[in-house]
Design a protein around this nucleic acid. Sequence first.
DNA 1: TTGAAAGCGGTACCAG
DNA 2: CTGGTACCGCTTTCAA
Lengths: 334, 334
Amino acid sequence: MKKSITLKELSKILGVSISTISKALNDSPEISHDTKTKVKELAALHKYQPNVLARNLKSGTTKTIAVVIPSVQNFFFAQVLYGIEQEIAKTDYNLVVSLTNESLEKESNNLNHFSNGIVDGFIVTASEETQIKKEYTHFTSALDNKKAIVMFDRVVKDINCDKVLVDDKEAVYKATSHLIKSGRKKIALVSTISNLTVGKSRIAGYKQALNENGIEFLESYVVSSSEEGIKKETDLFLSNNQTDAIIALDIQSSLSGLKSVKEKGLEIPKDVAIIGYSSERTASHLTPELSTISQNGIEIGRKATKLLIDRLKFPEKPFENIVVASKIQNRQSS
Amino acid sequence: MKKSITLKELSKILGVSISTISKALNDSPEISHDTKTKVKELAALHKYQPNVLARNLKSGTTKTIAVVIPSVQNFFFAQVLYGIEQEIAKTDYNLVVSLTNESLEKESNNLNHFSNGIVDGFIVTASEETQIKKEYTHFTSALDNKKAIVMFDRVVKDINCDKVLVDDKEAVYKATSHLIKSGRKKIALVSTISNLTVGKSRIAGYKQALNENGIEFLESYVVSSSEEGIKKETDLFLSNNQTDAIIALDIQSSLSGLKSVKEKGLEIPKDVAIIGYSSERTASHLTPELSTISQNGIEIGRKATKLLIDRLKFPEKPFENIVVASKIQNRQSS
DNA sequence: TTGAAAGCGGTACCAG
DNA sequence: CTGGTACCGCTTTCAA
């Protein structure tokens, strides 16, 4: 057996024209029942499969959408992806996933490549480098190319497209307020994502909560570092400062924060309470179980997909901004 | 601005033929330096991007490969994917990822869809359902379609293709032997993946180690359940049996095993030692830190990619089976 | 050095 | 009901 059979070859075998074959396979009413069955039988026999490229080239539409995200090691993105799949499964769209590893270049290459015929639209969250360098031309040129884009989480404000946002500021505001209400006064914030807009929003929520409760905001209580450096920084912070609670803005900070506090011989949550970000599974297997700010990744993925499919149907409808609320999941650490 | 400009439109603007434009952009020696620069300038001005579909349709090759895996929530697959990306980045191939959620139907659909023009080859690990139902026609028909396939981890023995395997039996054999050497005698095995070939291989390694050390294999010391049920089963097992060590064959079993033992009031590793499977990061943040059997996912991804790229270059070369060794990572739990 | 034309594998219009 | 033909966008051979 060789490379998948074509209409032309089928037509030669049956001695009818290519168009007849095509129509028969597509159940066109123009074709007699007789030839239809003959054609279909032959096609089945030879396991005919239409060439997707040819069809898409002709139709100008691909019925596939691309998800472009920095990584799947990040449980939040993995969750979102899961939501996207669920929603896509209900449609006749195909899905491809592409990872950027937080690299602007890869993100840009991916969008450009996929824009030129491969997909109809994108679900995207910007890479870290993209946000830092504020380089967004790959987004605009995909848009210029008449591709639909839905951004989620790490969205770019200036880009005109549908967006699904996380209530980052609000969520951390709630978490911080919660800690204050339960009597905590010296609340530290630990983060490896201060570069990202979402990181900044979260810090803003922290500040607002302190502010509204008459607690002074201290720059020194914000511990900010890279994923590699955060453990050391946190250790250092704990050596030099008194603290009775920690808000950790990402999974690395959460894990290393928990560890630092334990190593210091402090009791959680008696001496120090912790609220962080992590997957359900990880959170509930830590000792003590970690209280978390839980973003509804699946819901975000679903909403984003619906938005995109809808946009593809109605290209001219007004852009939407949807905010999906997070919620505080209290476990043992707070 | 509208849909990306085409050669035809450029040719109209410059008043030269389409072929001239095409050749100029591809730096054909047939074209004069003069027109080349003129054409290139115009193309740059209009941000010309060749249509990938048209090009691929014409050339019959797509320079893209698909990774088809059950999930990315599974850290091992995520690792492999990372290795694949690293290796692909060195080439001029594009990558798309597609997830099956352990569903045979999705796996089959993906392979069929991608086979018809979208990609040149696949890197695949079979879904759980595929292994259970032993339904492999989607693999063979992709192969018939002249697509290259490299399988890893959950490979199908009967399919003729390159394979990258994990030394599952060997690894668990080593882990079990290690426990026996350190004085453990009543070693339980916990697993949620007994359905999978890899699960069976791992159990075989466990048996062999017991056997070689004159320890009787007891069916009742194999705790096997679904992801949801495993915690309860383990609790039950611990209530009814004496054990001084646990081998857990997957991350769920590892986490719930650790938890069950702790909840029982037993000390780890004094009373019960545990060796399991988990990501480095999770393992080192658990209390106590989990000793693991560490599969070199990145290496596996890289090897698989090299194999595939090579196969695409030399379609007729003999198939290879590569085995990548795991290693025991001793932490606090053993 | 440039251009016309065929063809990749389909779809769809129009004629018969 | 069936077939011829143009076309989607690009590459490549052959002629000019």
